[in-house]
Design a protein around this nucleic acid. Structure first.
Lengths: 124, 124
DNA sequence: CATTACCTTAACGTAAACGTCAAGTCACAC
DNA sequence: GTGTGACTTGACGTTTACGTTAAGGTAATG
């Protein structure tokens, strides 16, 4: 038997707490490409995972254009050596970027602890 | 003697690698409020620090509106108990938000390591 | 005095990421 | 057959965060 879970657009949207409009928009931008049945969009596991990655990426602060590139990158079927080199260096860049954001967040959290301590002190 | 370092708008902009337009825009939105001398903007240490925080916040992914609130929050001169309570719970919310982003970034970095390993494996 | 280098405000333009109708299709319930 | 609900494709509207002229003021420099 075939237990491939599928979703309609509104089911998918509800699951991730976004609007159908958002899901269609991502398709328009080339980030999703669901099957069609009777002109209706049918989302499968692959789309589900993609959307999850997209939304996580958005929360981190990446643009849809960047996310599209990243998804394409991760989709490459490990072709030639040149391609591989490109993918690896691109991944390295992304990692640097992410680590910078981690540092920014860490610094902000540290500041917040300072503020909080100051307030609690003045309160006591 | 008075060694208060000041900056013109373009000096400040250059230091943080943004355009003067950006700095003026932040003032327009109420995030900065430099002194004026002869109608010229003069930025002092306070503005310098604020801009630094703003840009860090932007990199993390906060909107200017959110950053304005945060800066105002951190500026409160520790007034009444109600205010204090409000500030503390707001800080807590921000902290939760930041921690979520940290988790998102950590998950993304983990994914990237997986992709990289897969590529290197297929390469060998 | 004219050029150059900054500075000012004001206003219009733009890209991203959707929101919000509008108008129509289709399956199923009553 | 008439709703009702979920889907479709446009197409225009909106917010955010600036970019980009435009038009002019001021101060030092040759």
């Amino acid at each position: 038997m075939n237990t491939t879970t599928t979703y309609t657009i509104s089911q998918l949207a509800r699951h991730f707490d976004v609007t159908p409009r958002t899901v269609r928009f991502y398709e328009d931008k080339g980030l999703l490409s669901p099957r069609r049945v009777d002109n209706r969009r049918i989302y499968r596991q692959r789309d589900f995972v993609r959307l999850k990655l997209i939304l996580r990426g958005r929360r981190i602060g990446f643009s849809l254009a960047e996310l599209k590139q990243t998804l394409e990158l991760y989709d490459t079927k490990s072709g030639e050596a040149a391609q591989i080199e490109y993918v690896l260096t691109t991944i390295a860049k992304h990692r640097d970027e992410l680590q910078r954001r981690q540092r920014d967040i860490a610094a902000t959290l540290k500041d917040m602890r300072g503020i909080e301590a100051r307030i609690r002190a003045s309160h006591a």
